[in-house]
Amino acid sequence: MKSLILTYLFKTTIVAHMKKKAQYRGLFPGALEMMILKTLSWKPMHGYALAQRLKDISEDYLQIEEGSLYPALQRMLKTGWLETEMGLSARNRPVRVFKVTEAGKKHLEQELASVEKMFAGITRVLTLAEQ
């Protein structure tokens, strides 16, 4: 269930992002950031690896422009949820990897909690509405 929600969020967010800045006024502000934080807190990664990973776990359901991640990454760097450091890529090349900060972890926890609450509410309504 959770992964389905994430996939849905991911899709809407990316599409919205392509339409300029509208995404944050949309239904799920902060969804892309949440997914990035979740993925990166599993392992620090560079941009390409992050994009690949997001694609893989959504089982290629999403056909996205990889570049769309970058504005979001910059925003998160600016807010202080992420930081960068030098690391190695899968091919052992030196690359700049993104890593979740303490602030980022805290933010992720809060967001997950509130999203879960929201979906619990929505699910409950959807389940019980016609009874």
């Binding site: 570049g67 091919r91 090349r93 690359v95």
Partner: peptide
């Protein structure tokens, strides 16, 4: 600079 570098690395890796 870092941004450009990241994008370049991304493209190279891909």
């Amino acid at each position: 600079d870092e941004l450009s570098q990241s994008i370049r690395e991304h493209l190279d890796e891909k």
